[in-house]
Simulated assay, not measured.
Amino acid sequence: MKQHFAPGQLDRRGFLMAGAVTLGALGLSTLGFAPRAFAQGKSLSELTLGVATYRGQDSYFFEDAGTADTPYKVEYAEFAGGNLIVEALASGSLDVGGMSEIPPIFSLQSHRQPRLIAVLQGDVNNQVFLVPNESSVESIGQLRGKRVGYVRSTTSHYFLIKALKEQGLTMNDITAVALTPQDGFSAFQSGQLDAWVIYGVFIQLAKFRSGARVLKTALGYLSGNYLIAARPKALEDPLRRQAIQDYIQREARTLEWINDNPEPWATKSARLLGVDKAVFLDMHNQRSQPSKIIAVSEQAIASQQEVADLFFDAGVLSERLDVSPLWERNFPLLAL
C-alpha cells in the first residue's frame, strides 16, 4: 500500500517538479520491470521503501499509469525542496528522492552526501526571466541597475548568474532580490520587480494573470538534469538496491504515461495543486524537450561540476568543490 505524507504546503520545488519532472515523452517503451531480480517475493513484501515526493509529482499517477503494483511497500513523504531531501537521506529516514543539480553540491560541505544514481533530463523552458508586459527591457544586458528577483541557491540563482556573466555583468550590477517563489510572485505582480527569474507553474500564473512577458528561457543555460539520489546505506543492501532500481523503472513508465495523456494529467494536476488546468497544458505545450531517465554519464557529472564552479567563482560557495565523489557510475537502470 502506498502512503503519501505531507509535512508542508506546496512550494517552489513542488511546482518545479510538477512542471519539470512530469512532462515529456520518455521513449522507453522497451523498459520493463525486473521479475528475475525479485525471485524472493516474500522478502520484498516485507520491505518498505522510503521515497521523497512533491505534490503533483509522478508518484501521484502510478495508479493511472498501471505501475503501482510494487512487490514491496512504498512510503512517500512530501518535501519542500531538494535540500530537505538530502538531509532526510542522510538521516536514514528516506531511501530515494529527486532534486536539481544544486542540493548535492552543498551537501559536500556538510559531509552528508547522497549517492547520485540516475538522471532525469527534463524541460528547461520552465525556467525563465519574466518582465512586466509593459516593460521596455528587451535583453539581459538592459537589466543593469534593475531590481531582479530570484530564488537563492537554486537553478534560478544559477541561471541568473550565468546569463549576467554572458553579458559581462555580475550580481553587483543589478539590485538582486532573493525571494521565495511565493513572495517573488507577489512582488512581481505588485510592480516591485523589474524582472523575475523563476520556474515551474509560477511562469504560467504570471503570464495568465498579468500578461507577463518571457524575456529569456533557460534553453542553452541549464542542462535540464534532475538527479535521482539514494541513501548510501540503502544501496549497500542488495534487496533494497533492487527495489530502488525497480522503482526508478516504474517512475520512468509513469512519466511515459503522463506524456501520452496530457489531458487527464493536467486535470488531475489542477485538482492536486489547486491551479487551473490550462496552466499545466501550457507547461506541456511549451516544453523544450521530452523528458527521459538516463544512466549516469560523464556529461552529467561535468554539467554538475560546471554549476559548482560557477557558484564558487560567484562567491556563493566558499571553496572549489569536486562533485565526482557524489556519483554512482555503475547503477544499472535495466535489469536482465
Rank of each mutant, 00 (worst) to 15 (best):
Leu49Pro: 06
Gly141Leu: 10
Phe106Ser: 11
Gly98Asn: 08
Leu44Ala: 14
Arg144Thr: 13
Leu143Ala: 08
Phe38Cys: 07
Leu44Pro: 00
Asn133Leu: 11
Leu94Tyr: 02
Val148Pro: 07
Asn125Gly: 10
Ala80Val: 12
Pro103Lys: 02
Glu78Gly: 12
Ile102Asn: 10
Val51Gln: 02
Gly56Asp: 02
Phe61Glu: 00
Val128Asn: 08
Pro103Glu: 03
Asp95Leu: 05
Lys73Asn: 12
Gly50Ser: 10
Ala118Phe: 02
Glu134Asn: 14
Gln109Leu: 15
Ile140Leu: 07
Leu94Ala: 09
Arg112Asn: 14
Ala90Thr: 02
Ala68Phe: 10
Ser43Asn: 12
Ser43Val: 12
Ile85Ala: 07
Ala90Tyr: 06
Ser135Glu: 05
Gln127Asp: 09
Gln121Tyr: 07
Arg36Ile: 04
Asp64Ile: 00
Thr48Arg: 12
Lys42Ala: 15
Ala68Gly: 09
Phe33Tyr: 12
Asn125Phe: 01
Phe38Gln: 13
Val148Phe: 04
Gln121His: 14
Arg144Glu: 13
Ala80Pro: 01
Ser139Leu: 08
Ala52His: 02
Ser45Tyr: 08
Gly56Gln: 02
Ile117Glu: 01
Ser139Glu: 06
Val124Gln: 04
Gly122Thr: 03
Glu138Val: 11
Ala68Leu: 14
Phe33Arg: 13
Val119Trp: 00
Ser45Glu: 15
Ala90Asp: 14
Tyr150Gly: 04
Gln142Pro: 08
Leu47Glu: 03
Ala52Gln: 05
Gly50Leu: 01
His111Glu: 14
Glu78Ser: 11
Ala39Tyr: 10
Gly141Thr: 05
Arg115Met: 12
Gly122Cys: 09
Leu130Phe: 06
Asp69Val: 06
Phe129Gly: 00
Glu87Cys: 01
Ile85Gln: 05
Tyr54Leu: 11
Ser43Ala: 14
Pro103Met: 02
Leu31Phe: 10
Arg144His: 10
Asp95Asn: 13
Gln142Ser: 12
Gly97Thr: 03
Ala34Thr: 09
Val131Met: 08
Ile105Lys: 05
Gln127Tyr: 10
Ser91Pro: 01
Val131His: 02
Ser59Leu: 07
Glu138Ser: 15
Ser59Arg: 03
Ala65Trp: 00
Leu44Tyr: 15
Asn83Val: 05
Asn126Glu: 09
Val51Arg: 09
Val131Arg: 02
Val124Thr: 15
Gly145Asp: 10
Ala39Glu: 13
Ser135Ala: 15
Pro103His: 07
Ser107Val: 07
Arg55Phe: 07
Thr48His: 05
Gln40Ser: 11
Ala90Arg: 04
Val151Phe: 06
Val137Trp: 00
Leu47Gly: 06
Phe38Pro: 03
Val51Glu: 00
Phe79Met: 08
Val124Ile: 11
Ala68Asn: 12
Ala34Ile: 01
Arg115Ser: 14
Pro132Thr: 07
Ala52Cys: 09
Leu94Pro: 07
Gly122Asn: 03
Val96Arg: 00
Arg112Thr: 13
Leu49Tyr: 03
Val51Cys: 09
Asp69Phe: 04
Val128Glu: 00
Val131Leu: 04
Ala80Trp: 04
Asp123Cys: 08
Gly66Phe: 09
Lys42His: 12
Ile102Phe: 04
Ser43Cys: 05
Gly92Cys: 08
Arg55His: 08
Pro104Thr: 10
Gly145Thr: 03
Gln142Lys: 15
Gln109Lys: 15
